[in-house]
Amino acid sequence: MNLMNVDGYHAKIEYDEETDQFRGKILGLSGGADFYGSNPDELRRQFRKSLHVFLEVCKEQGIDPRKHFSGKFNLRIPPELHEKLAMTAEAQGKSLNTLAQEALQRSVTT
């Protein structure tokens, strides 16, 4: 995955064939903000500019710029996998929740 980081914010970068430029989408915001550039330096400059505009609008409107997460989500998996995970957790002396957190933490890219 192509990610760019600026001031603690992350953006996913993809090539936009239609515009023949790279498009960045800032992740984890309470609204949408994107930017375009032809090279890494331009992308970074436009990222900062787009983020600044977004943060200013949020400030003016009294909106928190970042999404909030509860720390809870439902995950649907096949019963067979659930059984294997539960047995693995028990064999390792861990809760299923701890086993899942560890596995998820290893897959995080940001």
Rank of each mutant, 00 (worst) to 15 (best):
M87H: 08
H52Y: 08
I26R: 02
N97D: 08
V53E: 09
Y15M: 10
P65M: 12
K49A: 03
V6G: 00
N5P: 00
E102H: 04
K49W: 06
E17M: 06
S30A: 15
N5E: 15
P79E: 15
G71D: 13
L96I: 07
E42I: 06
E56C: 01
L3N: 03
E102Q: 11
G28R: 03
R45P: 00
L104F: 14
N5Y: 07
A91H: 13
H10G: 00
F73N: 02
A33H: 05
D34W: 12
G93A: 14
P79I: 10
D16Y: 07
P79M: 03
L75K: 04
A100N: 03
H82R: 08
H68K: 15
E56I: 04
D7R: 14
Q92H: 13
L51R: 07
G8T: 04
H52T: 10
T19A: 07
E83H: 13
I77A: 09
F69D: 05
Q105Y: 04
N97W: 13
H82Y: 10
G28A: 09
R23I: 14
T19E: 09
D64W: 08
Q61G: 01
L43N: 06
G71E: 14
A91P: 03
V57Q: 05
N97A: 11
T88A: 12
V53H: 06
E17F: 07
K72L: 11
P79W: 14
E42F: 06
R106K: 13
E42Q: 12
Q105G: 00
R76S: 13
S107Y: 06
L81C: 08
K84C: 01
Y15L: 04
Y15Q: 04
K94P: 02
K49Q: 10
D7P: 00
K12M: 10
I13G: 00
A86M: 06
M87E: 14
